[in-house]
Amino acid sequence: MEWREFLGSIISNTSERDRIATEIGVHSVTLSRWVSGESSPRPHNMRQLLRAMPKPQRNQLQSLLEKVSSDVSDVDIDTSEQEIPYKFIMEVLDARASIPDLLRFWSITRLVLQQALRQLDPERVGMAITVVRCMPPRDGKIRSLRESVGLGTPPWGGDLEEKALLLGAESLAGHVTVSCRLEQIGDLQSNKTFLPAYQSEHEVSAVACPIMHACRVAGCLLLSSTQLDYFAPEARLSLVRGYTNLVSLAFTPNDFYDPELIALHIMPPPNLQQSFFNGFRQRVLRRMQNSASSESRIASTDAEQLEWLQIEESLLNLPPEPSHAQV
């Protein structure tokens, strides 16, 4: 028996076909095309297919697939990977209890993002994860969000913080922060829903989850993938929610705001923002040096925040551009 025939016998059950398709993030019609031979799954899809298989059929399907592809010969189909390891959760809690206040945000977010990348993109097909946080209120209202700590696997760079931007109502992150509800877009190129989003380079699908505490919001965790419908499986969305909750431990209570205070503006697109960030590190250093000669000495995090506020003010005062097209 060939693997296509075996898969066909499994998905002849319509409910099982739909479950498997949802689990691996493809359309049910795609499964039928694999069975008929109209198309073949990519190595990544083959591995996802095995992980979605019911236990009784996994080994047999893997044996059949190994006859036509070496990419599945060493697949680990342990379903425990669908949950955040308990040992790691304890590691984050220990960090929360022991790390000094000044280092807590950076240390915990880096720790969580590194583990999230390992678990959500184990085959390194390409993912970016960024912590997006609210800028301080202006006249009592929050006008924009800023990308903060970010990590990625190729084709994204390892550290994304140097490419951080300000986001507003035009972005998926902005929409999720305002609504306080997780949203995912399976195909940014053909997205026709109400969700606004700029599509960055390499980005094919995306998901954002609000960072919440006591019904208040601090921003969101934003994830992008090079793969179509990568965040469609419910198991993957559950991991996104879990890692977002862990990221929330990096924030202080004062970092969370009543959703009624979120009144985001439309921020300029990345190409227009970039010039305002040129020399950012030099300006931060200059602020610190100037403060060193006075009694009001400021830390690097405070100097960075002041620079972000200056950039936000400049961007908010720019005239609106007709090129702010939405995806």
Results as ranks from 00 to 15, higher is better:
Glu5Met: 15
Leu7Val: 13
Gly8Ser: 07
Ser12Thr: 07
Thr14Phe: 08
Ala21Tyr: 05
Thr22Leu: 09
Val26Ile: 10
Val26Gly: 00
Val29Tyr: 14
Leu31Arg: 02
Ser40His: 12
Pro43Met: 13
His44Trp: 06
Met46Leu: 12
Arg47Met: 15
Leu49Ile: 11
Ala52Thr: 04
Met53Glu: 00
Pro54Met: 10
Lys55Glu: 07
Leu65Asp: 00
Leu65Met: 10
Glu66Thr: 03
Glu66Leu: 08
Glu66Asn: 07
Asp71Val: 12
Val75Asn: 00
Ile77Glu: 01
Ile77Asp: 01
Asp78Val: 09
Ser80Ala: 09
Tyr86Lys: 13
Lys87Leu: 14
Phe88Ile: 04
Asp94Ala: 10
Ala95Thr: 06
Ser98Met: 14
Ser98Thr: 13
Trp106Glu: 15
Trp106Lys: 10
Ser107Arg: 06
Thr109Asn: 03
Thr109Asp: 00
Leu113Asp: 03
Gln114Thr: 09
Gln115Phe: 02
Arg118Asn: 14
Gln119Asn: 14
Leu120Tyr: 03
Met127Ile: 09
Thr130Pro: 03
Thr130Gln: 09
Val131Asp: 00
Met135Leu: 12
Pro137His: 10
Arg138Asp: 08
Asp139Met: 08
Gly140Phe: 07
Val149Met: 04
Leu151Glu: 05
Gly152Tyr: 02
Gly152Ser: 06
Thr153Phe: 01
Pro155Cys: 03
Gly157Val: 11
Asp159Thr: 05
Leu167Cys: 13
Gly168Tyr: 04
Ser171Asp: 08
His175Ser: 13
Val176Leu: 03
Leu182Phe: 12
Leu182Ile: 08
Ile185Thr: 05
Asp187Leu: 07
Leu188Pro: 15
Gln199Thr: 13
Ser205His: 08
Ala206Trp: 06
Arg216Asp: 05
Ala218Ser: 10
Ala218Phe: 01
Cys220His: 01
Leu221Met: 06
Thr226His: 05
Leu228Asp: 09
Tyr230Met: 08
Phe231His: 04
Glu234Val: 11
Arg236Gln: 08
Leu237Asp: 02
Gly242Tyr: 03
Tyr243Gln: 02
Val247Glu: 00
Ala250Pro: 02
Phe251Arg: 01
Phe251Gln: 00
Asn254Glu: 05
Asp255Cys: 14
Phe256Tyr: 10
Leu261Glu: 07
Gln273Trp: 04
Ser275Gly: 13
Arg283Glu: 12
Val284Ile: 11
Arg286His: 04
Met288Lys: 10
Gln289Tyr: 06
Asn290Thr: 12
Ser293Lys: 15
Ser294Cys: 12
Ser294Val: 04
Ser294Glu: 12
Ser296Lys: 09
Ser296His: 13
Arg297His: 07
Ile298Tyr: 01
Ala299Tyr: 13
Asp302Met: 14
Asp302His: 08
Gln305Phe: 09
Leu309Tyr: 01
Leu309Val: 15
Ile311Glu: 00
Leu315Ala: 02
Glu321Trp: 14
